[in-house]
C-alpha cells in the first residue's frame, strides 16, 4: 500500500492537501526533538525580526493624543490630495505596465517556442539583462531620452504615465520567469499548430488557445508587475514624477504619522495581492503534480 500517497496525488491535481499529508507524515518520522526546537527558535527569532518593524508601524500610525489609540492618521490619508493623486498615478502606470508587458512578452515568447527555438536563449538573456543593470544606472542613461520625449512629444511625453516604458523593462526578468514556467507546463507548439490547422490566425491562436492555457503564469507576471510599479521609487523620484512612493517620501517630511499609515496600508495591499497568487498561481499546482515524482510510488 506504499503506492497510495503517490496515486492519490496524481489523481487529485491541485488537491494539494491529499499529497501533503502523507509527505508531512513521512518527514515527521525523522524529526528529532532537537530539530523541532531549533525550528521553533529560528521561527521565533527571525520572524520576530521581520515582524517587529511592521508591528511598530501599526503602533506608530495609531498613536492618538495623550497616549490614546485612534485611526486618525488613516482617515487623514484622504486629506492629502497629492497622496490620492500619487495612488491614482501609480495605479494607472501599473495598468499600462501590465498590458504593455503582456503585449510585448507573450507573443514573443510563444513565437520563440513555436517557430524560432534558436532565439529562445537570446530573448531569455535580454529579459534577464535588467538584473545586471541597476535602476539608478538606467535613470542616468534614460534621462536624455525622457528629456527628448518631454520636448518633442508634447503632453504625452511629459506625462508620468511614460514611466510605464521603464517599468516594463524592470519587470521583464520576473515576468519572463513567470510566463516561462507557464509555457513549460503545456505543449504550446502542438496547441498552436492545432489551432492554426483548424483555421485560426496567429492572433487568435495566441489569444484564444495559448493564453488560456498559461493563464497562471500570466496572472503571476501581472501581479508582480503591479507590485513592482506600486513600489517603484528610484526612477520616478529622479525623473521628478510624483508616483505613490515619491509622495510617501515627501509626506514623511511633513507628517510622518500619515506617511507610515500609507506605507503600512500599501504593504498590506501588496501582501494580499501576492498571497492570492501563491494560492492560485501555477506554483501551487506544480508542487502537487511534482509530489509523486519526488516520492516514487515504489
Amino acid at each position: 500500500m506504499t503506492a497510495t500517497p503517490g496515486t492519490l496525488g496524481a489523481a487529485a491535481p491541485g488537491g494539494g492537501a491529499l499529497t501533503a499529508r502523507p509527505r508531512g507524515a513521512g518527514r515527521g518520522r525523522r524529526r528529532s526533538p532537537l530539530q523541532t526546537s531549533a525550528r521553533i527558535v529560528i521561527l521565533v527569532v527571525v520572524f520576530g525580526y521581520l515582524v517587529l518593524p511592521l508591528f511598530a508601524m501599526l503602533e506608530f500610525s495609531t498613536r492618538g493624543d495623550y497616549g490614546t489609540r485612534d485611526l486618525a492618521s488613516y482617515a487623514a490619508i484622504f486629506d492629502y490630495p497629492d497622496v490620492v493623486d500619487g495612488i491614482v498615478t501609480s495605479l494607472e502606470i501599473a495598468i499600462l505596465t501590465v498590458f504593455g508587458m503582456l503585449l510585448l512578452l507573450v507573443p514573443t515568447m510563444v513565437w520563440t517556442v513555436v517557430r524560432v527555438p534558436r532565439m529562445r536563449r537570446v530573448v531569455e538573456f535580454l529579459c534577464l539583462l535588467p538584473l545586471a543593470i541597476p535602476a539608478i544606472v538606467i535613470v542616468v542613461g534614460i534621462a536624455p531620452i525622457y528629456r527628448w520625449m518631454g520636448q518633442h512629444l508634447g503632453v504625452f511625453g511629459a506625462s508620468p504615465l511614460t514611466l510605464a516604458f521603464i517599468d516594463i523593462i524592470l519587470v521583464l526578468p520576473y515576468a519572463y520567469r513567470a510566463i516561462d514556467s507557464g509555457l513549460r507546463t503545456v505543449d504550446v507548439a502542438t496547441l498552436a499548430d492545432a489551432a492554426r490547422s483548424l483555421g485560426a490566425g496567429w492572433p487568435r491562436a495566441i489569444l484564444q488557445v495559448v493564453v488560456p492555457n498559461i493563464r497562471g503564469g500570466i496572472l503571476s507576471a501581472s501581479v508582480l508587475a503591479v507590485a513592482l510599479v506600486l513600489g517603484e521609487y528610484t526612477i520616478s523620484s529622479l525623473l521628478s514624477f510624483h508616483t505613490l512612493q515619491v509622495v510617501i517620501y515627501l509626506l514623511g517630511k511633513r507628517d510622518p504619522f500619515v506617511s507610515v499609515a500609507v506605507s503600512l496600508a500599501a504593504l498590506v495591499f501588496a501582501f494580499i495581492l501576492l498571497y492570492v497568487i501563491t494560492r492560485f498561481a501555477p506554483g501551487a499546482g506544480e508542487r502537487a503534480e511534482r509530489a509523486p515524482e519526488e516520492e516514487p510510488a515504489t
Binding site: 506600486l230 512612493q245 501582501f271 501576492l274
Partner: peptide, 28 residues
C-alpha cells in the same frame, strides 16, 4: 512566501519608514 515577496521586492522607502517607526527618535 507571500510576505517575503512583499518585503523583499516592494519595500524601499516604506521599509525605511518602518524602521524609523521602530528605532527612530520617536520609535516604538
Amino acid at each position: 512566501i507571500a510576505a517575503s515577496g512583499v518585503l523583499a521586492q516592494f519595500g524601499g522607502v516604506m521599509l525605511a519608514f518602518a524602521f524609523l517607526a521602530t528605532f527612530g527618535f520617536n520609535g516604538l
